[in-house]
Amino acid sequence: MFTPTNRPHRRLLASAAAVFAAGALVVGCTSNEPEEEANAGGDGGEGGNAEPAGGNNEPGEEVTIGFSGPEADHGWLAAVTDSAVAEAESFEDVTLQVAEGTNDANLQISQIETFINQEVDAIVVLPSDGAQLTEVATRAMDAGIPVVNVDREFSSPDASRTTILGDNYGMGVTAGTYACQLIEENDIQDPVIAEIAGIDSLPLTQDRTQGFNDALDKCGQTVDNRVAAEFTVESGEAAASNLLQAAPQIDIIWNHDDDQGVGVKQAFDNAGRDEFFFIGGAGSANAMRWIKNGEMEATVLYPPTQAADGIRLARLLAQDKGMSDLVQEDVPRRIVLDAPLVTAENVDQYMHLGFES
């Protein structure tokens, strides 16, 4: 993440200045007005796509970005919003209007409509339901407001200028590939492999499971025991308890989500079971601490910084800038982030990304 140096103090503006229609309240507005005037004579990093390396971080035209996301009822989702706010605060030329988090698609539609009416310069949205928000996002695009779609895709490519996604299938591949590595390195004969999934009806869960199965297939292995939870601590404990009762011996367990992993780990502790290699998913602070303490083998990162990346790209789009690190400098239409493996060897490198469950 970009860390500003020698930048003036930023402050969080009060939210009372903006109230959404239909009760959709703006609960935070981040403004980054400098305490002192910028040095005269600099070009401020403006001027299209011919930016030298690093020039995009220089202050440019002041822009207002609207951000709307789901209710932060999950540690990962809370981290998403926090990272978006922090990224906006790192730029003195960005004012961020943060809508109240909601899982009500109709309320989120109203929030986007308000951003359109306010004529913000760009919108970053993590939809509660990508299909239901496609139409209003398309209206924003038609109004000339670039939309950055985060994590849950719209139904039409016309609904956003760019889309930033975590790699759910890649998470499964990373976890499965590591499971194969553990089997080989520890010479495990006829391994018993278990999987604790998230909500089975969600495409993201299906993608993670498919990636896991495909990776295991490459080393001739399959999942022997599978249960599904609901991304909550309580459901994780219940699902893991059922799994342990059904399987008296397990060699490897992959749990899709580190938030539900708090309950999963509690079930392990309650049963006094630790004979298996425990692999997690998402990259919570709890998981990283367990890895450091030797209570967990690894976790697979699902970056909570997606919305922060969205803020950064929305700023570039609103200022008509490109990506100076690319030969083709225009902001890409689609970005899929990596799903790296976090182990004891590299956990310190990723610890700053760990979110509290």
Rank of each mutant, 00 (worst) to 15 (best):
V125K: 08
I109D: 06
V347R: 09
P59L: 13
R11Q: 14
G354V: 02
N117Y: 09
A314S: 07
I145S: 07
G198F: 01
A179V: 11
R161V: 12
L317T: 00
A99C: 09
N293S: 14
Q221D: 02
L341V: 06
R273G: 07
Q108K: 04
Q206W: 00
F91W: 08
I199K: 08
A229M: 01
I112R: 06
G236T: 05
D73V: 06
S201W: 04
G41M: 11
S160L: 04
N57I: 11
Q118G: 09
E329V: 14
F115G: 05
A143S: 15
G69Y: 01
E275I: 00
H352A: 14
A78C: 04
A143T: 06
A194R: 03
T64N: 10
E297S: 13
S90R: 12
D258H: 02
P304S: 14
P248E: 12
G23L: 15
S324I: 00
G172D: 08
P59W: 07
T305C: 01
V192C: 00
E237I: 00
I335Y: 15
K218L: 12
D158S: 14
F278I: 02
L353Q: 12
D190P: 00
R11D: 13
A344W: 03
V227I: 08
G23S: 15
R312P: 00
T30P: 05
K265D: 01
G130K: 03
D93K: 08
R11Y: 11
G75T: 04
T305D: 11
T174V: 04
E295N: 13
